[in-house]
Design a protein around this nucleic acid. Structure first.
Lengths: 203, 203
DNA sequence: ACCTGAACACCGTTCAAGT
DNA sequence: ACCTGAACACCGTTCAAGT
């Protein structure tokens, strides 16, 4: 058992988060528990409550790290693309790729529901919003003259759609399973949606 | 405590499912437990294991009932519409309406993940598939000449998209909260997607 | 035959007591 | 000051024992 002053609070926090990541990656949210994390880092459960308010806060921090990884992947996908449509396709493919490569980490972001009425903290919402902004940037030229709000709404619409396909595919609720087929669906959604924007139908 | 022969196995099953529905409606999947269900119906936990294999099987049956309710709602939405596009919009609105009216029941369908490698039983998948078929029927005239498989894939693409919007909205992960705004997004997705189909872009 | 009640191996969370 | 370890109120699941 680790004793006093072996590690600073910051170090324990880091050790706990990284142990949690390991456990989630292997067994998903179901396989995560305060006791298992504590055991993994050589402390007792009580210690976790000295550095985290509760298990939900710990999970939020793991999710924040996952969001950072995801954002990096999506950002990387936008560097070598030219037209808006192909950029959006590239972001979509990066999203599918991430979800299928890190299914448990990715799913936990959405499985972890905050207590009723509790809002996610500002820093967390920022991490989510900048993901939508990547899509907004690409939609801008396609929606020239439209308000910022309208563009943001369009990005949400499209991206929630892409997310829905991933979510049902990764949880085996669709009858497609490999990344290839999921990509066919997300490509199709993006292509049709973008074509629909081009057709400029009134909504 | 209920004693022998007070109820048949079928009656206990029905009582348990209906107690579970009540608990889920109020407190969501988190608030559901075998012990609470048993207490609600006046039996001990052990009895539940005489009529259900485990809690997962019980939850699957509650979900099956929710799927039946949902299917009825979607079906009802298709009776008084004329064009494919307006029919799909109507089904989408019925879906949003159901998800926002019965958030816990609706969410549990997707929160409940089967054990790894275990497939949902045939009767369950049928209930899911007939929902997609409602959309396929409406897409058919828009995709005249396309293969059944292609039409099925298009229905999945669109409906997963609609689902994604609902899912993120109902779990407060979007910054829209009332059914009105969700509907704006799903309407937009459907309208753009259908317009994209009409534009007949190659995918 | 039907159901109980206690047991087992787990949870998250708290906090008096030890070093 | 830092961390433990035991307690509390919960889980799902099993099964010998009671009626």
């Amino acid at each position: 058992m680790a004793r006093r002053s072996d590690h600073t609070k910051e170090q324990i926090k880091e050790m706990a988060l990284s142990a949690a990541e390991k456990l989630v990656t292997r067994d998903g949210l179901q396989g995560l528990s305060a006791r298992k994390i504590a055991h993994e880092i050589g402390y007792t459960v009580g210690t976790l409550y000295l550095v985290f308010e509760n298990i939900d806060e710990l999970i939020s921090h793991v999710n924040a790290r996952t969001l950072d990884m995801l954002y990096e992947s999506l950002l990387a996908a936008t560097v070598s693309c030219r037209q808006p449509r192909t950029c959006i396709l590239a972001i979509g493919r990066a999203y599918v790729e991430f979800a299928t490569r890190h299914p448990h980490r990715w799913k936990m972001i959405f499985e972890h529901n905050l207590a009723k009425g509790v809002e996610a903290p500002q820093w967390y919402r920022m991490k989510v919003n900048r993901m939508f902004e990547l899509v907004e940037q690409q939609l801008q030229p396609l929606l020239a003259g439209q308000s910022r709000k309208k563009i943001a709404q369009t990005a949400k619409t499209l991206w929630c759609g892409v997310h829905g396909i991933c979510a049902l595919a990764v949880t085996n609720k669709l009858e497609v399973d490999d990344a290839q087929s999921i990509q066919t669906l997300t490509d199709s959604l993006i292509n049709h949606f973008v074509a629909g924007i081009a057709a400029d139908i009134p909504v």
